[in-house]
Design a binder for these strands. Structure first.
Lengths: 192, 192
DNA sequence: CTTATGTTTGACACAGATGTCAAACATGGA
DNA sequence: TCCATGTTTGACATCTGTGTCAAACATAAG
């Protein structure tokens, strides 16, 4: 194998992810990606084919990290505490950076899903997995607290609420307000 | 006053709204608006200045209609029934058309709010009003059912959930699934 | 050292969008 | 009727992004 790639693929995709998080899928051009990664546009086309392919690879990295983090914070005794920690984790992620990054998966779902079936499938898969992570984590906590609805429905409602919170963040609600919304859900769902 | 506008402003803004609903704020160009409204691009620039201005006017129309519709469906005896009817109304709106239109305000919040303060403010105002509409409607229903959290928080959680549902719609969840999510929230929030 | 192989580079042709403008136009009021 | 006023129109210059490609290049393997 001669003719070897001159850039570090992991570094490049990592930087590409930064660009996508800062600008969103639609607004990111191949020019932006070239600038952000330090790799020439032509090389990016040669190596990956185009923006969608690059996005899908970077998004996979994002998904893996996010889900791993979620599973970690959910792992504690007490369903209520676990959920509150999970929402804190989400909100911290959304609100990080200045201007705030927002939630990449939500952004992608809304702005890119319709025009790219593969992207839609990737986001959908991510949310399904997140639902499973939440479900399994709650199922593993045996503290006598029972949700108002069955566990699968509760998990889906929790995931849906993270999406709602991500949207509320975009219109200017601060972390404190977002946490209040989360607390309202947890109180409702896990009645005392 | 000589030199009079040749197109019907109400019709044009109505059609512009269709275009924005079909393609989203970002993806809509002045060319698209010209095609959609039947008004020449130059005339649109002359009359409104640019895309953002046109959007804000069309969005105001959308907001008025949506809020009026929401107030109407929320007006019934029984808090649970009112909320379920409200979610049905939202879901029907999001799922209408093929491909489904989705939720314009959610879409706009996510894809346009950061890059246009006026747009962000418009969406924020719309959501604040929606929260008030929900709050006032629930406050007016005296059926003995009490939410698990205070009414203001409940209203905000409901609005947040409509946003979450709008996102879930984008990744392929159908109306039936979306209604289940709504039902989970209503059950949790308004414990029997 | 040489070769074969895949990579990098800058340039090219093209498409779509922007914002502006002078000239042509339509029309209410004098 | 004619004029003043604001509107419409198509064209223009410009910009940003796309996707492709031949030539230059780097390097692992022989």
């Amino acid at each position: 194998m001669a003719g070897v790639r001159q850039f570090d693929e992991r570094v490049a995709l990592d930087r590409a992810l930064d660009v996508f998080e800062a600008r969103g899928f639609r607004a990111t051009s191949m020019l932006d990606l070239a600038a952000g990664t330090g790799v020439q546009r032509g090389s990016l086309y040669h190596a990956y084919g185009g923006k969608e392919e690059i996005f899908l690879r970077a998004f996979q990295e994002y998904t893996d990290r996010f889900l791993a983090g979620a599973a970690e914070v959910l792992d504690r005794p007490g369903k209520r505490a676990a959920l509150l920690a999970f929402f804190d984790y989400c909100i911290d992620t959304f609100a990080a950076g200045s201007p705030a990054r927002g939630c990449l998966s939500t952004r992608t779902a809304v702005e890119a899903a319709t025009e790219s079936p593969r992207t839609e499938a990737a986001v959908r898969a991510m949310l399904d997995e997140l639902e499973t992570v939440v479900h399994d984590a709650l199922a593993a906590i045996d503290d006598g607290v029972t949700p108002a609805v069955d566990l699968r429905a509760a998990a889906r409602l929790v995931v849906t609420t993270t999406r709602g919170i991500a949207v509320m963040e975009r219109v200017g609600h601060g972390p404190a307000e977002l946490r209040e919304i989360a607390a309202s859900l947890v109180t409702s769902l896990m009645a005392p």
